[in-house]
Write a protein that binds this DNA or RNA. Structure first.
Length: 261
DNA sequence: CACGTTGTTCTTCC
DNA sequence: TGGAAGAACAACGT
């Protein structure tokens, strides 16, 4: 489920392998992935150009098209990745959008469950403003978080997941942040102390940065994390007690009732 | 085969 | 009132 760490890994992949390569073929395999842009327009804007910059904001990836300075916008929904490959046999199984470079290499937007989308934007700031997407989760301090959460009446987990409040955190990492911070997902934001919000901010940074260092692969996360134990009968990695799951705001939250208050 | 997963949209509710 | 939460939706592999 591509959240901020996953998309950051994709950003680095594009930065390392996707810049400066001239695009000569544009292959839209699934037209329903295109939002507010036709395949013809996309082909016209991409062909003959190369990406010259790549940025991430929250869960959204922006590839700047050199020459016209438009942004190719990628959102992955709940599944997906970007892939570079030379041998067509190495194409990912669910490539919905494929670019061919003039050096023979290819780029694929892989999106098994087709909840992702592709757009074209004039500029990043305008796109984020139009979508109402809030500040990136790695771009603010504890005081900012305090301000972002001020006046909220709901629970902390959905607040962390609200992309208009904070961009980049989804179901899995919100649980991990709250587990590390020792705060239950269903705690009311209004009842949190300044110190608890400070702890949440600290863990938010640490969890996301650590996840990026581990290539956002759940199996590679520290054993002291709850993420690798989601969905199973594993005991709490911290106290050995029984983990609990509960629907919070329509999502399954996993937490430890002993370690989290 | 019901489930789980995301963002969006609509509805319900305090 | 309006902010939150919930339900439905779109897709598909397990």
């Amino acid at each position: 489920m591509p959240e901020l760490p996953d998309v950051e890994v994709f950003r680095r992949r594009v930065g390392a392998q996707g810049l400066g390569r001239r695009i000569e073929a544009v292959d839209v395999r699934d037209h329903k992935r295109l939002h507010h842009v036709s395949a013809a327009r996309l082909e016209r804007e991409l062909r003959g150009h190369a990406f010259d910059a790549v940025r991430r904001h929250g869960k959204v990836l922006f590839l700047r098209i050199g020459g016209n300075s438009h942004q190719l916008v990628l959102h992955f929904g709940m599944t997906g990745a970007v892939a570079f490959y030379d041998d067509p046999d190495n194409e990912p199984a669910h490539a919905r959008f494929v670019l061919g470079f003039d050096d023979g290499g290819r780029f694929a937007f892989d999106n098994q469950r087709r909840f992702g989308w592709i757009e074209l934007a004039d500029d990043i700031e305008g796109y984020l403003a139009a979508k109402g997407i809030g500040p990136d989760a790695l771009a603010f301090d504890a005081d900012d978080l305090q301000a972002l959460l001020a006046g909220r009446r709901g629970m902390i987990k959905p607040a962390l997941m609200d992309q208009e409040t904070i961009a980049g955190i989804g179901n899995v990492y919100s649980d991990e942040i709250l587990f590390q911070a020792g705060v239950r997902p269903d705690r009311r934001v209004a009842d949190l102390t300044t110190q608890e919000i400070g702890t949440i901010h600290c863990q938010l940074q640490r969890v996301l940065e650590t996840a990026i260092e581990h290539d956002a692969a759940p199996a590679h996360m520290p054993r002291t994390w709850i993420t690798p134990h989601r969905g199973g009968d594993d005991p709490c990695p911290r106290c050995g007690g029984k983990l609990k799951t509960r629907r919070v705001s329509g999502r399954s939250a996993w937490f430890c009732p002993q370690c989290q208050q």
